[in-house]
Design a protein around this nucleic acid. Structure first.
Length: 426
DNA sequence: TCTGGGGTCCTAGGACCC
DNA sequence: TCTGGGGTCCTAGGACCC
């Protein structure tokens, strides 16, 4: 009789068609029907129900290219609603935390969970339990892959997606090569378009072949990331679980316009608005920016109007999170890169070299700074209570005819009390 | 006509110094 | 007149992720 085994176990829990599943929560009529969710500006398809996938609608494809199939098959279309998805995501993560607090929230719809304290024998049952509890408490269906390393659990998850049970464990499997052989190289975590091309040229087409390639060869011909991936395929941990959420290093706010902008004044308004959003974001995390970048560009898909893309970085002597200062810097930068005669499609602001408030005090901090800080705080509080951009700066504009398109928005927003669905007791 | 947004990490190469 | 080469630091851009 063998003793109970407790090997390293990492689970990857991934919400199925997450944005679509969120929309379905509040709209039972679209269950079992083909549904897609669009990216900002109703540009691309970024989430598809299984029924939509079955129709051949591709991930990331521009909406207008799939419109024929969509209309013909009566596919339900939604503009994305990130405050809703963020809210549901937090509920899912809270539920997962009950199984182990060692959790890495990897993205809005994915988390890694350390399940090493469960025995090898019971691990699959634990997976099933997690899946059914999340479904019951949040209404979101998930797929779960469990293995010795993150990269392997990604693969297990990939396989689980196609299974009825939704749970796949690679723990205790004797000959993992038989499984890795069926995993295409471009489905391996960390292998993108370029690496796929490179590996194919060198006769590597599946995960097993990469796993069995000598590390020296990989390091010499590719880079350390690739060798890490190969090691992880061998079951050796190289990518640790990041359970503590670390402070971000940069913050970007950028948008495509609902219609092209040619006018300098409108571009100024857009940039001012993005600057305000970005400033508010870093303030909410008590961060300060040392560098500010502003960028503008025309569409890269229609060059008959001429392509133009440029950016300007401004380095500040003292890090700041003051909206007024940041807007001033970006508008200044914009003046330097704006060129007449182009149809601008997108613009954005990036705050980088972010640091903590603690090391921001210096010789030049003054009473004036204190006053500005309290002004910023009251603006943030007002906007939090009465909705974003209740208080703004005049430079951010009022009409905003260039705002993103959102023609398929559902009226749901769990952060908005008046939009909550009502349940009538009989 | 219409093609998202927000991140991280790595590396090659330039600037600079001795 | 001959014009080295190694080290460090920084950054822009590429690749990847969701």
């Amino acid at each position: 009789m063998s003793s109970i085994q407790y090997t390293k176990k990492i689970a990857l829990i991934d919400c199925n068609s997450f944005y679509v599943s969120c929309e379905r929560l509040f709209n039972p009529k679209i269950r079992k029907k083909p549904v897609v969710v669009l990216s900002n500006n109703d540009g691309c398809i970024i989430s598809r129900s299984n029924e939509a996938k079955a129709l051949g609608i591709k991930m990331g494809e521009p909406y207008f290219k799939e419109k024929n199939i969509i209309v013909k098959n009566n596919v339900q279309v939604f503009s994305s609603n990130y405050s809703l998805y963020g809210d549901i995501s937090r509920r899912v993560m809270r539920t997962l935390k009950r199984f182990n607090s060692d959790i890495e929230v990897y993205s809005i719809d994915e988390a890694f969970l350390d399940l090493s304290n469960f025995s090898d024998d019971e691990i699959e049952n634990v997976g099933n339990e997690i899946r059914s509890v999340v479904l019951k408490w949040t209404g979101i269906p998930t797929s779960i892959g469990i293995a010795k390393t993150k990269t392997l659990s990604k693969i297990a998850n990939h396989i689980a997606k196609k299974k009825q049970s939704g749970v796949v464990s690679l723990i205790g499997i004797k000959n993992i090569d038989l499984i890795l052989e069926k995993v295409e190289i471009n489905d391996v975590w960390g292998v993108g378009k370029q690496l796929t091309k490179f590996y194919n040229q060198n006769g590597i087409y599946n995960a097993k072949q990469l796993k069995n390639k000598p590390n020296t060869w990989i390091k010499k011909n590719s880079n350390v990331l690739s060798s890490r991936t190969a090691m992880e395929l061998r079951g050796i941990t190289c990518v640790n679980l990041e359970t503590k959420s670390s402070k971000r290093k940069s913050c970007v706010v950028s948008r495509s316009f609902g219609q092209r902008i040619e006018n300098f004044q409108e571009l100024r308004e857009a940039i001012a608005g993005y600057s305000l959003n970005a400033s508010e974001k870093i303030r909410s995390e008590s961060l300060f920016a040392k560098s500010i970048t502003v960028f503008i560009r025309t569409s890269s898909f229609q060059d008959r109007h001429g392509f133009y893309s440029n950016s300007k970085r401004i380095d500040l002597p003292i890090a700041t999170n003051n909206s007024i200062e940041i807007v001033k810097a970006t508008l200044n930068g914009l003046e330097g890169i704006f060129k007449n005669g182009y149809r601008y499609q997108k613009a954005g602001v990036m705050l980088s070299h972010l640091s903590d408030s603690t090391n921001n005090k210096n010789l030049f901090s003054s009473e004036r700074d204190e006053k500005i800080n309290s002004l910023m705080k009251s603006i943030d509080n007002t906007n939090y209570r009465y909705g974003r951009s209740t208080l703004s700066l005049a430079s951010a504009g009022v009409h905003k005819i260039w705002n993103s398109k959102r023609q398929h928005c559902s009226k749901i927003d769990t952060a908005d009390f008046y939009s909550l669905p009502t349940i009538k007791a009989i």
